[in-house]
Design a protein around this nucleic acid. Structure first.
Lengths: 198, 198, 198, 198
DNA sequence: TATGAATGAGTCTTCATTCAT
DNA sequence: GATGAATGAAGACTCATTCAT
């Protein structure tokens, strides 16, 4: 049985990834409770029983997904590091637009909400989620502090979080709409936000 | 078997409400799939079998919840009608603050996300949700048009939707935090939004 | 609660008949276990609960059907009394032909098999069925003895029973076939049977 | 999930047979609806859930029983092939006698009627039953044509079918009677039938 | 007499998990 | 590592029966 999926290398890492990918697809498709181990095994091209060589039980699979997702987000956030201060607004607008149209991001949003739903009743998941959240917030705050000389960085990050969550929720709620874009009012908001001198 | 739960009166309406209230509580607690009919019956102070006198099956219960929720939101939105144009920003800020601290609103948010999760795999629910959404949007746009003379009303409503969705998602994701309030940046955004003259 | 349904007169008899007719239809349609009391009540134009004013339970309904069926058959058999000896063969051939084409007789055959199936696991029904059978056999034997002077009357009746059962089973098994008639071989058999002088 | 039970070999065939045997016993005992999956599982020495590895649902079990029964009957019928033409009558009389006394044949008759009852409301079963019937009839007709040079073969087969059905129904209806034998009248009929020269 | 609301035991079926091979 | 047969508890739903009105 494996305890830390983030340290795996080689074949084992590959097989575990297969399971996590398969499970993610199934969870998005059918929900955590709706997706059966048999289905996941099928999607992962593995026998049902064999999944239990890698994961103690179904719960352990979401836990691992949450952890992996946390790392993925952290890596995404690192992109901000290379970004000149005066490109932040446009960069984030682009990311938010993507949320409204991209298949990839829609999938991730759905998965997030699936996990969010599960976290309501699994405190362990809730804890992991909070950890992910605070780690992410910390990194973003640090990056912003490097780029901007202002004392309301946490405010900004909070606002950004709210915005991303809102756009993500909308995209899931309404489905993909052709040519959907972030509303002009919010574009203005983002531009003003980073233009302000405090 | 009942087909339109919005037209019920008397004892039947009462019993149906009991079921919907009970189910809402259970769904928030355990999720749609996690909540058993037995639990719901228990909470509704009714035998398991008797629920089926009012609802064809478990699915019909969420559908009814979604419909009821749609009506509730429409009624809430009507409050905006009485509001003078220059109070909009503060009113909405108050509502958003409530989302971050209120038990009632947290419950509703959780329920919404539970429903959202289920809508991912039940197209009928997804349809009802979309109808609710567009009806709500229409009403809000009409009200705003009465109060404000500007041509970007849909933009504003879209931005507001995103904001509420974002705050709602955050409150669910992070749980209730003492003294949490809407971030200053977003307060400014709302004030600016309604101050703008176009 | 009623104990002897054969002695009823007036309104009560009517209401009981309604139930028995309705139940017969439902049993043929869905089988004894497949037919619900609600359905039967519906078909009888009566509330579910009210059926229990007339019948102790579902079992009592089949019992009553079997009894009524027994009487009906006995009355049918009485027709033979009026029949001249040299018309027996043709009369029976006509009846058997009817079994193969008539809606009415098909319904009765189906009902019989439904009852037969139920008698396999309800000894009380099995007993009633056997009583019906022996009473019917007795009556037929008596009639035949009046008409024919031969000492193999029981043999003949046995053969006739087998024939009717066989035709009945075939009609149920194969469904109604346009223009189906009793096979020539069996026609010859019946004619020979009553022509023989012993 | 298995689709064609007639092609199975080895362990799987064995396990499926176990289920079909167990189910046959239970169906005869309690009827299709009266027999619970738990009982069947018990009788088959298998867990309830495991039955569903072999059969999609309860319906699939009868379907398989009907198919197997069809094959069994076809094999029985093949015995006629070896039979000299002048032994047909006696052979069939023996078989019919067996129907009236044998435990084995009584069981099969009961099972047949249980299936017949179910076929009334399951069109798929009805279809399979008709297929079995026509295949059987075809084989018998072919065999008879090899042995007898007459042009009323279908008539004969029809009469035989009626006879077997009738005897089968009687044996089920009346239960086993000690020393029951086919009635002399029907014996004569069978002997005459095959003696006739056309 | 008549209704239909109410009950709860019982049914089929699913599914996470284990284990022999 | 890998399979899939096997288990059994739990879930949604049905239905005969009772009872208050």
């Amino acid at each position: 049985m494996i305890d830390d999926y983030t340290q795996l290398r080689g074949r084992k890492a590959l097989r575990c990834s297969q399971v996590l990918d398969a499970a993610s697809i199934c969870f998005v498709d059918k929900g955590f409770h709706g997706a059966g181990m048999a289905e996941i095994a099928d999607q992962a091209q593995m026998s049902t029983g064999h999944i239990y060589h890698y994961f103690r039980n179904k719960d352990a699979i979401i836990k691992a997904i949450v952890l992996r997702e946390g790392q993925r987000v952290l890596e995404l956030v690192q992109e901000l590091r290379q970004l000149p201060a005066d490109s932040f607004a446009e960069f984030l607008i682009d990311r938010l637009d993507e949320h409204l149209i991209g298949d990839e991001t829609l999938f991730q949003s759905r998965l997030s909400f699936e996990i969010l739903a599960e976290s309501q009743r699994n405190p362990e998941i809730a804890g992991l989620l909070r950890e992910n959240e605070s780690r992410k917030t910390e990194v973003i705050e640090n990056i912003l502090r490097e780029k901007f000389d202002r004392d309301d960085i946490p405010d900004i990050v909070d606002a950004l979080n709210t915005l991303f969550a809102g756009v993500s929720a909308s995209s899931v709620r309404l489905g993909k709409t052709d040519g959907a874009r972030l509303s002009p009012a919010l574009r203005r908001f983002l531009r003003d936000l980073f233009a302000e001198k405090r």
